[in-house]
Design a protein around this nucleic acid. Structure first.
Lengths: 230, 230, 230, 230
DNA sequence: CATGAATGAGGATTCATTCAT
DNA sequence: AATGAATGAATCCTCATTCAT
């Protein structure tokens, strides 16, 4: 039979008192969270193919095998990361209460929320990017996310209707188009900042720039919604 | 992914004079182009990390080593792909002649051009996506592209000035912002079609949808540029 | 092979008092037996290397660590399985009482017993196969089995002597050869049924076939023992 | 991005003249054969699960990846080994010419051939053992071997018929049974020599023992075939 | 007695790249 | 210009085993 070192390592250095095991958390909740956080970083920075299980384990401060113990495979780990990121977004979206606001204010709030959320959670953009490279294959594979669409569409629909009724908005706008428009303006600016920066020498992420772009998004979507003078 | 090449017992009959080499192009130009095309497909479909030299060689119908002969490394091959894609875009942009047009028409042309170009060249979007995942590191490494910014900025600047002078456009708009706005609306729609489709059940790529979105982009940027009534 | 245990978000509700442990047998005897049964199946089906502790634990419905608690190591578990299987055989062999029978009848009983036992205990054959792959290294390591040879040899010796004396059997036969002959005919048929079936399309395990082969074994060994006409 | 040591290793130790590359055979035929031989040894000694690709590469004196280059996977390598072993046996069987012999001599030749072949090729027995542990799954997967049954059956059929006609053999014997009987007596003795040796202290592989057992097989099958005196 | 958490040492396989012709 | 052979360094994943409770 092949050599097969039969875990003899044991008693060899009898005298050496083992030096207080670095980390035996025994707090599965924490361990899991720590893996998820490390995985998120790695997938965000490197995409699915570029991320390395080894590196994730290292970053999480856990044994590599533990990742398999908790998540089963790289793919399932990635899906867990995706789930968490989307869930957090959906949850934040659900906390928006736009129905009490004036339609114009409502759209402004919505656009600024979306913008600020992505500024504050840059990882999400990278995950979305990665998902689209893979034609959303992992997203579809997620039980949690399949079919869980944005609660914002309903809110936008209501705002557009109220705005149209009050004469503040044009009457023919489509809520999905509005959503995509808002999302596009924010997403592109952040997601493609690197190629943009390579083309235009502009400090895209300077705080005042970020604020200004938020205002630009608001201005643009409101201009689009403004009814045309006859 | 790539079918495993499993040595099919070939070579057995040593004596047989090999029967006229299947493919020995001996047309370096064509060979190179063929590799580049195959590489483009692979990088577009899989990103940098996901692309496989083996698969590219197979798709190009050439020996793997030839890729190294022509391009030196995976990275340099990728840069060549990137170069080609960007060059084509820049070249097409340079062919746009907007200075003769009415400012509103000019912006419309520009926006539609950008939209249609990306619709017609979906690979470009994926390459840009990949570049941004990697923080544009390869773009920076490209001698050709470093600092070669879009010729459109100058054209937009001129259009905005003329439009402002004629009272058709607001006076305070920024050409880079305008460019980004146009680009964002097109890019996001195409680049994120997969996650969009997973969230909203809409046939985003149906021809009439594509046309409609082109119009939406035009409408949006023009609404943004329209001077506010005092 | 074993379904991946993917941490199903359990533990989330920390406060909930765990609801009456699903399974805490607290019947060591049963637990041990259950592990042994599961281990037997796994070693029989997969050999030593192919068997998985995880799977055995799952099949036994116990925690993996319990296997170590009871048996110490995979190897010792395997030896326990081997011990049990051999002990059962030896015990059954010991229950055979051939000394009262006519020699021909005795040989027939013996051969049929051996055949039927292996038909009824197919796992034994697989264990023997596995042992021989490993050059009987575990068998040698077993305290129970080392040197515990078949009680049948003595019985055969007696039968052969009586048969020779009565003129029913040839005088020069060797009891070990007789034993091996009987065992070989049964073992090969069962152990190699898969390659046999792949070569000859025959339903080797149909009940009537099994009976017929039992008779064949008897016939063959008796033909061999029959004294040659001078 | 993760560290990714970009194959810099190159020029580091400029001064050291690399010590004449151990082995760059450039003789694919030899390389392939060498891998196959090493693989055969490993699979024979350890079964499918116990064999290690690493070890095979080491034994073959080749890079591990080369095994994949030539054979694609461990499974396909194993099948290649199986193919070779079975093919060699079938080929040797085909070289037997029994039709010219007296039926008794023919059976004797056949039985001795089978016995001696297995004595001379002990690996075959181990491969057959392994195949049966896996229910012949790889054998079925082999294109070469699927349905390629032993040419001996036809030869045996002819011998039995001739023997029956001449009154040397009983009339009701079945060629497959005869084949299995011969094979069983040889296979069991060799395949289970380790457990046999553990039970009976006998030097089973001593040359004179081997010869004697060959004679025993002949004697047994002929005794079985001998017509019963009415 | 029993369990879930955690680990180190492999193990098969992949991949970009280089060598020799 | 072009190719098949060969390689070293990962890379994902598995497995027996141990720790802590």
């Amino acid at each position: 039979m092949a050599k097969r070192s039969v875990r003899t390592g044991k008693g060899e250095a009898k005298g050496t008192p083992k030096p207080a095991r670095k980390k035996a958390t025994r707090d599965p909740e924490r361990t899991r969270a720590s893996v998820l956080a490390a995985a998120t970083r790695s997938f965000v920075e490197n995409g699915f193919n570029g991320a390395r299980i080894d590196r994730i384990a290292e970053r999480a401060g856990v044994n590599k095998q533990l990742i398999y113990y908790y998540f089963g495979s790289k793919e399932q780990l990635y899906i867990a990361v995706l789930d968490a990121a989307y869930s957090a977004l959906r949850s934040a979206e659900a906390d928006l209460h736009l129905d009490a606001l004036d339609p114009v204010e409502g759209i402004r709030e919505l656009a600024l929320f979306n913008w600020r959320y992505h500024v504050a959670h840059p990882g999400l953009i990278s995950l979305v990017r990665t998902e689209n490279l893979h034609k959303a294959k992992y997203l579809k594979r997620s039980r949690k996310l399949a079919g869980l669409n944005s609660p914002l569409i309903a809110a936008i629909t209501a705002l557009l209707r109220r705005g149209a009724e009050s004469g503040q908005f044009r009457a023919d706008s489509d809520p999905v188009d509005v959503y995509i428009t808002i999302a596009a303006l924010g997403f592109y600016y952040l997601a493609n900042q690197w190629t943009l920066a390579a083309n235009f020498k502009r400090r895209l992420l300077a705080p005042e720039r970020l604020d200004a772009w938020g205002e630009h998004i608001v201005e643009t979507i409101l201009a689009y919604l403004r009814p045309q003078p006859a």
